[in-house]
Simulated assay, not measured.
Amino acid sequence: MLWVKRFQPDRQIAIDAVSSLDTLTALLDGQVGSVNRMHAVRLDGHFSRVTLRSVPRQAPPYRSVSEVVKDQNVFVLENVQGTLVGYRFPAFLSGVNAPGYHFHFVDLERRRGGHVLDLASASLLAQIDTTRAITLVVPDDALFDSTDFTASPGGSDYQPALRPNFQRPAPR
């Protein structure tokens, strides 16, 4: 899934030293207001450590996420300026997106980045955009209409059916 947001922060928060992603998310939960709302978050600063992952580029037929992450590349950046961007989804939307925070990082030069697994920083500036609405657009095609999503989430038919304009390879 891809989430896009016209980011318009409601507030800024200066964050002192954090030693882990868990520490950061607990601190943010105390600052965002209601955890039953959706929050887009941007954090800028100097990171003493950021542990990231990236996965190889995929091509049809798409593998499930659980299969793709088996080939993930985990790496650590140290003493780097950059930006974390992400969302916090509430628990009641777990059928739409995993609840909690999901962050991605990019360095100041926009050359290195990935999905954030852990981090440490002496200070960060957080900007938070709380929103009440999301728009969910689903594919408008026969493949989506005929897929049984209850049968095997993550199965071979699941992900192709969620990708608009997906072309299933011709049988050999």
Rank of each mutant, 00 (worst) to 15 (best):
D140R: 05
H104F: 13
V68A: 01
G95F: 15
Q159R: 13
V76H: 06
A40V: 06
S121A: 15
P153N: 08
F92W: 13
G100C: 02
S19E: 15
F166D: 04
L124R: 02
T150E: 03
F92D: 14
P153E: 02
K5E: 11
P171H: 03
T51S: 10
L143R: 01
A122S: 13
S20H: 01
R49C: 08
S94W: 14
Y87N: 10
P139I: 00
V80C: 02
W3I: 12
T51N: 05
L124N: 10
G95E: 12
L93I: 01
D22M: 03
D29C: 11
S64D: 01
Q167K: 12
G45K: 06
S156D: 07
S152W: 02
T83E: 00
R6P: 12
H104S: 13
V69M: 01
T131K: 11
A17Y: 14
L21G: 09
R111L: 03
R132C: 15
D44C: 08
F47T: 01
Q167T: 12
W3M: 14
S123Q: 11
S146G: 11
W3T: 11
Q72A: 12
S123Y: 04
E109M: 12
R63A: 10
L162Y: 02
S66E: 06
G113K: 07
S20N: 07
A133P: 14
F89A: 04
R42S: 00
F166Y: 13
S146P: 05
D71R: 12
L162Q: 04
Y101W: 10
E109G: 11
S48M: 10
G154I: 00
E78H: 15
S123M: 09
V68M: 09
V137T: 13
H46V: 10
N165D: 11
N73L: 15
L117N: 09
P169C: 14
T147H: 04
A151F: 01
A126F: 01
V138S: 01
R110G: 05
R57T: 15
S94L: 12
G45N: 00
W3R: 08
R110T: 05
S152C: 14
G45E: 04
D29L: 06
A161K: 08
Q72K: 13
S66Q: 10
F89Y: 10
A151R: 12
F149S: 06
V35P: 06
E78L: 15
V65C: 04
V85I: 07
N73T: 15
A120D: 08
A17K: 14
Q58N: 03
G155C: 00
F149I: 11
V35C: 09
S121E: 05
A133E: 15
T130C: 04
R63C: 10
V55L: 01
Q12C: 09
V80T: 04
Q8H: 15
R168I: 14
T150M: 08
V41P: 00
A40R: 05
N97Y: 14
